[in-house]
């Protein structure tokens, strides 16, 4: 379970969360749907422990969180395969090629990120997040820049996850594709839509 109670967070003068409270479930897929810039990514960053709230409490019942960022954040000096391998322990490195192949990147294992298309980079970032494991998966706009056919393929991979998955999106279509619960958000400051 992820629980935020009266959480306040601002970037300088810009209030992003104002006494915001929410409980997110510890199973299945939960889509956090809201317009761009409403504070969804800040919410993820708070859950992942990358930033701390100025006020309020956050409790996260998960030890290891895997986070697919809004940006690909691939290491440009490592190939697609090496980027995924980098998050795996030494005895599990063989998994990297398998996951990339499942996401349709079997022919791009040794391609360097600058030579990959936007969609391919997104898939490598997803492969890395899936490979890392963890007991909670956070996906921030995982389908950005992807063709509809590819989105369906990735959605089916995400649905297969046995751990809870929280997905940030601003598209109703993506919510439909993923199924699961939907939490509608608005802001800033971030609020639950009635």
């Amino acid at each position: 379970m992820v629980r935020l109670k009266d959480v306040t967070f601002s970037f300088g003068d810009r209030l992003v969360l104002d006494s915001f409270s929410i409980e997110l479930p510890n199973e299945g897929i939960t889509c956090l749907l809201g317009p761009s810039g409403c504070g969804k990514t800040t919410l993820f960053r708070l859950i992942a422990g990358l930033i701390r709230p100025q006020l309020g409490e956050i409790s996260v019942d998960f030890n290891k969180i895997s986070f697919m960022f809004q940006e690909d954040r691939l290491l440009p000096w490592l190939s697609a395969l090496e980027n995924v391998r980098a998050v795996l322990p030494a005895d599990e490195r063989d998994k990297a090629g398998l996951i990339l192949s499942e996401l349709g990147l079997g022919n791009e294992l040794n391609t360097m990120p600058p030579e990959l298309s936007a969609g391919m980079k997104r898939r490598v970032a997803l492969a890395r997040a899936l490979a890392f494991g963890g007991d909670l998966l956070l996906l921030d706009e995982p389908f950005t820049g992807l063709e509809p056919e590819l989105m369906e393929r990735l959605a089916s991979h995400i649905k297969k996850q046995s751990r809870p998955v929280y997905v940030i999106t601003h598209s109703e279509k993506e919510v439909e594709l993923l199924g699961g619960r939907t939490v509608r958000l608005k802001g800033p400051p971030l609020k639950l839509e009635n």
Partner: peptide, 24 residues
């Protein structure tokens, strides 16, 4: 800093962060 955050999330640890992020 985005790569450093990525290294933190994926638990690279100090040695791996130096080897894979800082040195290159």
């Amino acid at each position: 800093p985005e790569l450093l955050e990525m290294a933190f999330i994926y638990r690279f640890g100090a040695v791996k962060t130096i080897k894979l992020v800082y040195i290159p």
